[in-house]
């Protein structure tokens, strides 16, 4: 997760919010990145670098599309993924959707 871009909150009323991401949102982002970066198909990409991380705040954290991630791949198609919280860990490579479980007692309020 080194060199990770700022996790931006996309406000449903328009534009990006100035509110910082909560620890739980950051935890989700880290967990989803870990799943993606452990995948063999991802590891076959040449020097992918995380360039964008956005929370679509209009969606619940369990909604597909809640977290948007983008990895730039020099000279190739950037890879977009969407992460959300679910019961079991799963990466659907074709759709780019990643589901990760987070503990229910994980922090939900930013400090």
């Amino acid at each position: 997760m080194s060199g990770v871009p700022e996790l931006k909150i996309i406000d449903p009323s328009g534009g990006s919010s100035d509110s910082p991401a909560t620890p739980r949102q950051q935890q989700l982002c880290a967990a989803v990145c870990a799943v993606i970066e452990a995948d063999e198909r991802f590891r076959a990409l040449h020097q992918p670098a995380l360039s964008r991380a956005e929370i679509n705040a209009g969606l619940p954290e369990t909604g597909p599309g809640y977290l948007y991630l983008r990895y730039d791949v020099p000279g190739a198609v950037p890879q977009e993924f969407w992460g959300h919280v679910g019961k079991t860990q799963k990466l659907a490579w074709k759709s780019g959707q990643v589901c990760v479980p987070l503990p229910a007692d994980a922090p939900t309020i930013g400090t």
Partner: peptide, 10 residues
């Protein structure tokens, strides 16, 4: 990749 339907609905 395609946009998830849940995001489209949002």
């Amino acid at each position: 990749r395609n946009v998830p339907q849940a995001l489209k609905e949002q």
